[in-house]
Design a protein around this nucleic acid. Structure first.
Lengths: 116, 116
DNA sequence: ACGAAAAGAAACGCTTCCGTAACGGTCTGA
DNA sequence: TCAGACCGTTACGGAAGCGTTTCTTTTCGT
């Protein structure tokens, strides 16, 4: 079930959602952080630092720092992989799920308001 | 013509577009910068620093800095308002239009790939 | 058993962003 | 006309991001 958007619909959707996100959310995540967060919550686990770095095309410290920041915000958690103690498994939190739920609602709302 | 999205469609769309944007674009604009850029290009002019600050709910220096950064990237230009020389009018550029055209195409492409 | 490899974190120097506050140039109305 | 309001920028100290490099712990192959 693809979603067919016109050029103006696509950009207007992005515009209104970004704007509301900026206005509402004081946490001000970067695009990278949002990508990581969405990836963790939408793609089946397990998620590792190395894996995420490869997927986003960034270096490992970028992921570590993003997880530090989002961990402080309560959006994700980390725990050692007991099967291979070199790995860290990135886990979801209730707050993180809530955050993305709100984002989803925002996108849906702004999508409904589109014209042309 | 509203766009009806399911919760999973909304988040998957945001996920895939953010991910591709991170992978493709080395400029790495912040969400605020993207909001400003989209606003300048989608909302009829004139655009002023004070006006944008009010719309985004941020302070004026935030707008000035964002315009500095995006000006260096060639995405926007500024010029004094000759009618009231206190004001600065923010203008569009060819590169900026091209940047947003690519973003629009990306959103459209990822929208087409959605399922469920 | 032990050296190499792998994973994540920490350190380092740098850049960029933030909000508050102060600053010059411009307009305006009393 | 000129004091005050307005507009955008700059300055400042601090926080957070970046990529590269180094370090610690753990695993794996021989």
């Amino acid at each position: 079930m693809p979603v067919e958007l016109s050029a103006s619909q696509a950009l207007n959707l992005w515009h209104s959602v970004s704007l509301e996100q900026v206005r509402i959310d004081n946490r001000d995540l970067t695009l990278r952080q949002i990508s990581i967060l969405l990836h963790i919550y939408l793609v089946p686990p397990p998620h590792t630092v190395r894996g995420l770095a490869g997927i986003l095309g960034v270096t490992k410290p970028v992921i570590t720092r993003a997880l530090d920041t989002m961990g402080d915000l309560g959006l994700v958690t980390r725990s050692r992989d007991e099967r291979d103690k070199r790995n860290v498994i990135i886990k979801r939190t209730v707050d993180g799920a809530l955050y993305l739920e709100k984002l989803g609602d925002l996108i849906i709302d702004q999508g409904r308001k589109l014209s042309i």
